[in-house]
Design a protein around this nucleic acid. Structure first.
Lengths: 189, 189
DNA sequence: GGTTGCTGCCTAATAGTACTAGGACAGCTG
DNA sequence: CAGCTGTCCTAGTACTATTAGGCAGCAACC
């Protein structure tokens, strides 16, 4: 009965890796226990329940993604920042599909307010600042960016665009260009 | 042991209603059996398995949604058609969140090709025809529309925009307007 | 009009996941 | 070194998914 040194943090990390391998939906307490080499009930000393595990993975992913995005947009502005922002999202989703799916888990309002989700919104706003949008347009634009990036990435992951010309990459670039043009045209409004 | 007259079609319908009530993720063979007043294994005469049920509900929802969208855009063109198209999606998702979620189920390529999903793509293309886009821009634009509408609706359903000004409705209108402007500016390219 | 048989439902049984209760042992703490 | 606490265990419950096999009622056939 050697202690494995399990902690909520380690379990969350392992859960995130598991999510990337088998999909977030298949992340189960049983599977995680197997992966950690312990019996299933042992995890209940560290996790409240299955939902708790999923929330922890979601928060972890939100935080990691926010770090990446912050890193990507640092020192950029305007179209450059927009492209970097978009790229960071798409790359993360492609590299870590399970974590990306986790980041989209619906969180209850209190949890969400304390999560890195707010950093995401702040970064989107920061990028839009370069376009000189006033309220309420800035908020509309934040929602548009969120919708487009999330929508595209989730359709892409779901294989919605697969196996048809033109390349997804081209569409992505076209869309980012279009958004840039759109925001510039709304500038000052 | 009165026969209930269960058929795959009836079960699919009941499953769709169940999805709207409790969420697509909670649609389970057990729950469906309870709702139909039969014992769980009885459903296996009509359904291959749990996945089969979910796919049937997805196909049903795709078809129903395509009908609605077709109805909404009939006789319209340009910005009018775009707005009607968008509205039909959003209304369906708000009215039937479970079915909408079902419609987003990832289908294997063969099933998808035989589904009403192709009608959706055709309708999107038909609307874009009014903007005079050439390939490959038309395809990029189809993907953009799909991304925005799906992204917005799914974030809205997930409560991502909730409880913050301005109203989601305003953002939606602003976004549809923006897309219209965007497509017109790309016209002829 | 009884036998044959199909269909639609059933019971029974197996396996996997989520979770609780309660026990044992190791290592820190007094 | 005695005890406490935390970490892991076994055992047991409940629910979902799925398979196997049985029975009953309707239909068609001789």
């Amino acid at each position: 009965m050697e202690k494995r040194g399990l902690t909520p943090e380690r379990l969350t990390r392992a859960g995130a890796e598991l999510a990337d391998e088998v999909g977030f939906d298949e992340v189960t307490v049983s599977a995680l226990a197997r992966r950690c080499g312990v019996k299933l009930p042992s995890l209940y000393s560290h996790l409240k329940n299955s939902h708790d595990l999923r929330v922890r993975i979601a928060l972890f992913a939100l935080d990691e993604l926010a770090d990446r995005v912050a890193d990507a947009v640092a020192g950029r502005a305007g179209r450059d920042a927009l492209a970097a922002f978009a790229e960071a999202y798409r790359d993360y989703a492609r590299e870590h599909p399970g974590r990306y799916a986790a980041a989209r888990l619906r969180l209850d309002p209190k949890t969400a307010a304390a999560s890195a989700g707010v950093r995401h919104a702040q970064m989107a706003r920061a990028i839009l600042r370069g376009y000189g949008l006033n309220e309420p347009d800035a908020t509309h634009a934040v929602r548009l960016l969120g919708s487009v990036f999330h929508g595209f990435v989730s359709l892409e992951l779901a294989g919605g665009f697969a196996h048809s010309a033109p390349d997804e990459r081209e569409s992505w670039d076209w869309i980012v260009d279009s958004l840039d043009a759109l925001l510039r045209s709304r500038s000052g409004s």
